[in-house]
Computed example of a mutant assay.
Amino acid sequence: MRAAVVTTFGGPEAVRVVQTEVPEPAARQVRIKVAAAALNPVDAGMRAGVFGGEGKQVGLGWDVAGTVDAVGAASAWNVGDEVVALHPGVAEKPLGSHAEYVVVGTDAVALAPRTVGVVAAATLPLNALAAVQALDLLELAPGQSLLVTGAAGAVGGYAVQLAVRRGVSVAALARAGDEEFVRSLGASHFAVGGAEAGAFDAVLDAAILGETALAWVRDGGAFVGVIPKAHPASVRGVRTTAVEVQADGVRLAELVGLVDEGALTLRVAETYALDEASKAHARLAEGGVRGRIVLVP
């Protein structure tokens, strides 16, 4: 089968599509024939060596939508099931979802949305799980205030919609041209350049502004970043942490349900063939992408 990998770290040109053996599922694993797989900033980080792995072949891709085509022992899934899944983790990852087939744990899988196609479905797992798990860390009650930075991005957009469903008062920080979009997600307030110091009960920092965004949290509030172990230190009694996305098929199934209800907005920016993976990385590096780039084997 074909798979997108890096063997030396660098820019988009470091991405190679190689021929490799089709992986076999072990106990409590399933193999998915990939129909579509989203390209995320974390893949660019893996390509550049941010997560290590020097001298090894590193597979790319976390999100996947496709069809179960083989199951290991003790699997609750059946061949032919149409699914979405998160291929988790950056360690011990010889192959990712940017391939013709991928093996994942049975508990990372959920039935695919019924109301959208596979390309759109592939944009859901990583970013939506990041958003909902970040909101869980914030522990906000209905009526409390939240500022989402990078609210027009993939994680930020999901966070706005999910927080509004929890009864949280959401303000969105994004570029001026994105105001109509983020308000359509449910944000009640919009900001471009920043916010008043201490104005919010919490900040979800999807734009990775760090200490700048921390200043917008009230004393004793909460701050969650999206890069593990890279959040700012606590000040003024503000609890600070960062989300480390975990595969969770049960939670993913709940998010799929919200997609089918029309409560979560999936956005596809562009699609590329798997063989054009390096071009897709180059497009991501250019910036200005609204929605996710998706690779199709």
Rank of each mutant, 00 (worst) to 15 (best):
L204R: 03
G220T: 06
R218V: 12
A213D: 05
H189N: 09
A206Y: 09
A202I: 03
A207T: 06
D205G: 03
L204P: 01
A206K: 09
L185N: 06
L214R: 00
G198H: 02
A215Q: 14
L209S: 05
L185E: 08
T212K: 13
S188F: 00
H189F: 07
L185V: 07
A202T: 03
V192L: 08
A215Y: 02
G198C: 06
A222M: 04
L214G: 00
L209G: 12
G186E: 08
T212L: 10
V182R: 10
D219H: 13
D178I: 08
F181E: 07
V182I: 04
A187G: 10
V217N: 13
G210I: 11
A195Q: 09
E179L: 07
V192Y: 07
F200Q: 00
A199T: 02
G194T: 00
G198W: 05
D205K: 04
W216K: 06
A187D: 06
V182E: 04
G210P: 10
V182L: 08
F200E: 02
R183P: 08
V192A: 07
A207Y: 04
D201F: 01
L214S: 02
E179P: 07
A222L: 08
H189T: 13
H189R: 15
A187V: 10
R183L: 10
V182G: 04
A199W: 00
S188M: 00
A222S: 15
A215G: 15
R183C: 12
A206R: 06
D219P: 13
A187S: 07
R218Q: 13
F181Q: 08
G220P: 07
S184D: 09
V182C: 05
A213N: 05
S188C: 00
A199C: 02
E180W: 03
V203K: 03
A191M: 11
A187I: 06
V217G: 10
E179W: 04
G194A: 01
G194Q: 01
W216L: 07
E180R: 14
D219S: 15
E211N: 11
V217Q: 12
I208M: 13
A197K: 12
G221M: 14
R218K: 15
G198S: 09
R218S: 14
E196F: 00
A215F: 02
A206D: 09
V203M: 06
D219W: 12
D178F: 11
W216E: 12
G220N: 13
T212V: 15
V203F: 06
S184L: 11
D219E: 15
A222W: 05
D219L: 11
G186P: 07
F181P: 02
L214I: 00
E196P: 01
E196S: 04
A215C: 07
S188A: 05
S184M: 08
V203C: 08
D178P: 11
S184Q: 07
D219A: 15
G193M: 07
A222F: 04
L209H: 08
G198V: 07
A199E: 04
D205I: 09
E211Q: 14
A215W: 01
G198Q: 01
D201H: 10
I208E: 13
A197R: 14
A207I: 01
A195F: 04
E211T: 14
G221N: 14
T212F: 03
